[in-house]
Design a protein around this nucleic acid. Structure first.
Lengths: 197, 197
DNA sequence: TATCTCGCATACGGACCGTATGTCAAGTTT
DNA sequence: AAACTTGACATACGGTCCGTATGCGAGATA
């Protein structure tokens, strides 16, 4: 049977986002050509502007998708830990490892903030941040962490993890640097503990 | 007397960097037009490409200048503290406050990494990072901090400070958020202490 | 089945970047 | 000091890219 109109429209959006994700990751946002990108998806720029408004809108959609995936994964890993404190550490390590993916780095960590502005103002509301913030809030309520501002702690932790990943990725020997970064992250995070280890 | 050739060349470079700094800060790197920018400096694109190679080269020169200024200021503030530990905390707070400057944010924190790549690979070698790294090394040698990897600690600390600044700047009430961020930063940093407070 | 809707393709205009070429003053040589 | 050389900068051109305005044809509606 012939496909319904809303079906094909959704399929096209998926195709465009997938093609954009690949192009943005390989060439970077500004160097990615909308003509090539849409042709790669079997469409033209017409479809793109109709669905996403402009180039920024497309990037926002891609970032939203990736951010959501990352947050889900981090939350899952965190929930698997023995207690909430180990969960927070595991989440942090998970972010560091995820940020080693070149696709994540280029799109979410570099071009995303530069083009869309501060992550906390993204349409997706930055799910990653919310996940760690709620983890921090739980730990504060349990009396495990100092009563610092949860939002502040989450922002600084994610910032530290993010920068660790950029450092690792740029280093010549990522595998030897990763444990150093994770250990430093654990040290920093333990500064939030009410009762030092 | 007639100006020597190297004199005018240096003057022109200064003019171009100043104009670029203004344009990049106001419009962002990609939206800044080279024609407008050079005209604002009383020159043309010819001068620009002769001196800096391309648009990226100009951004690199601007970032280098700003990074150097920031590192000098942070070091000065850190040296003014009572001891090295307080110095490290003061440096961190200084970075957070400097990063509140829209010019710093747009050029050094957002467009810089997106266009030039990881800061540790910048031509300027990122003076800011080096300053905090040497501060961390001193404190480790003194037995005040845990023997973590100095580079890792410096990267994570600067990353945390950086992200704190982005958060503050994006918030509606920066003045009320700043102290929260600074306090969270001090908590995190104290996680590096060998003997908890 | 006839009409309407709208998602997408096509065509156009404007802007911008990087390079290739021209030009003229500052330095150099004789 | 006069002719010559160098090179810093201006000018002109080609190619690419983005965003919009217009056209079309397949699904939706009655």
């Amino acid at each position: 049977m012939a496909k319904s109109r809303s079906e094909t429209m959704l399929e096209n959006r998926v195709k465009l986002i997938a093609a954009a994700r690949k192009a943005f990751a390989q060439k970077g946002y500004s160097a990615a050509s909308m003509d090539e990108l849409t042709a790669d998806a079997g469409l033209t720029r017409g479809a793109l502007y109709h669905n996403f408004g402009d180039k920024r809108g497309l990037l926002a959609a891609v970032v939203d998708q990736m951010d959501t995936e990352m947050a889900a994964r981090a939350q899952e890993i965190g929930a698997r830990a023995d207690d909430d404190w180990q969960g927070l550490l595991a989440e942090g390590a998970a972010y560091i490892e995820m940020a080693l993916d070149p696709e994540v780095q280029r799109i979410v960590l570099l071009d995303g903030p530069a083009v869309l502005g501060d992550p906390s103002q993204w349409p997706s509301q930055n799910s990653c941040l919310q996940v760690t913030r709620s983890a921090v809030e739980r730990l504060i309520a349990q009396g495990i962490l100092k009563p610092v501002d949860a939002e502040a702690a989450a922002r600084l932790l994610s910032g530290a993890a993010l920068n660790a990943a950029l450092w690792i990725a740029a280093s010549e020997n990522p595998q030897s640097v990763l444990p150093k970064a994770v250990e430093a992250f654990r040290s920093l995070a333990s500064g939030l503990l009410l009762k030092p280890l």
